[in-house]
């Protein structure tokens, strides 16, 4: 960027503004992180001694392990299924032209735009009618609905970077449509597919509202957190909050690395 003409004053002001924005966003998380290591029962300043007792308390709580188990079980299945669905939808968009395609695409992208409370309520009403509410599979179905559009968006971005001749070149060299999918399209999209796996897992991991509505006794970790909050003010919330944050950030960062690298690897046209 050419900032030769920019005044020093504005430069410093802008930097300060960026730092302030990040501080605003991350302060609560940082506070939660700090208090999770605080020996005091209540989050107040001055801090007490450094302690991992709340971590021990969480680790010894079988209910937390239940929630974590559910979250992982749901998260893995959701990420695999929604990535497969999302990739399929993105490929359909890339490859075919058909009547009503804009409507199809709009529908496919719709779920994340619906307020989660409404979606959760609708899911509960629908799933209980077909006797699928209150189970892990209910959360899985609901999460696939909100995660697939993310997977589709990521896959679409990657497909849009592909030379459209690539697939035809594979056919022309003797690859059937399935073989071209397996040996050309999927390998080309592999970074995006992994990125989508991680992002959708992170979305499922964090999602609270819908899981709260449909999970019944098979609560995921965020739903468990609410349980803690309602019962008592316990620093264990900070521990779980920190854990969920670190896990989600790790997944998102891995996805980000994969997706950035793929863009750079795309060969320059000459």
């Amino acid at each position: 960027m050419n900032d030769f003409n920019r005044s020093r004053f504005i430069e410093i002001g802008l930097r300060f503004y960026v730092v302030l924005s990040f501080a605003f966003v991350f302060a609560p998380i940082a506070a939660s992180f700090i208090f999770s290591f605080n020996s005091d029962r209540f989050p107040s300043i001055p801090l007490g001694a450094f302690s991992t007792e709340w971590y021990r308390a969480v680790a010894n709580d079988p209910l937390v392990w239940d929630g974590l188990g559910n979250t992982l079980f749901v998260g893995i299945i959701v990420s695999v299924v929604s990535t497969a669905l999302g990739f399929g939808a993105a490929y359909t968009d890339f490859r075919y032209r058909f009547f009503g395609k804009p409507v199809y695409m709009a529908l496919a992208l719709l779920p994340p735009t619906i307020p989660v409370v409404i979606l959760g309520l609708a899911m509960l009403a629908y799933l209980s009618r077909i006797n699928l509410s209150g189970q892990s599979v209910s959360v899985i179905i609901a999460h696939i609905v909100i995660c697939s559009p993310f997977a589709m968006a990521i896959s679409r971005l990657r497909l849009s970077q592909m030379d459209p001749d690539l697939e035809a070149a594979a056919w022309n060299l003797g690859a059937s449509e399935w073989a071209a999918m397996r040996y050309v399209i999927v390998p080309f999209c592999l970074p995006a597919i992994f990125g989508a796996l991680f992002i959708t897992m992170a979305v499922s991991f964090d999602e609270f509202a819908i899981a709260w509505f449909v999970s019944g006794l098979n609560e995921t970790l965020p739903v468990k957190v609410l349980g803690f909050l309602q019962g008592q003010v316990s620093p264990r919330i900070n521990v779980i909050g920190t854990f969920v944050f670190v896990t989600s950030m790790t997944l998102v960062i891995i996805a980000q690395i994969l997706l950035t690298r793929q863009t750079r690897e795309t060969p320059a046209k000459d």
């Binding site: 030379d163 001749d165 690539l166 035809a168 070149a169 594979a170 056919w171 022309n172 060299l173 003797g174 690859a175 059937s176 073989a179 050309v184 390998p187 080309f188 690897e265 795309t266 060969p267 046209k269």
Partner: peptide
């Protein structure tokens, strides 16, 4: 096309990156 032996050299070359 995959059953014909009519390979093509593409304008974009379409090499697999």
């Amino acid at each position: 096309t995959w059953q014909r032996d009519t390979p093509m050299v593409w304008q974009s070359l379409a090499l697999f990156p």
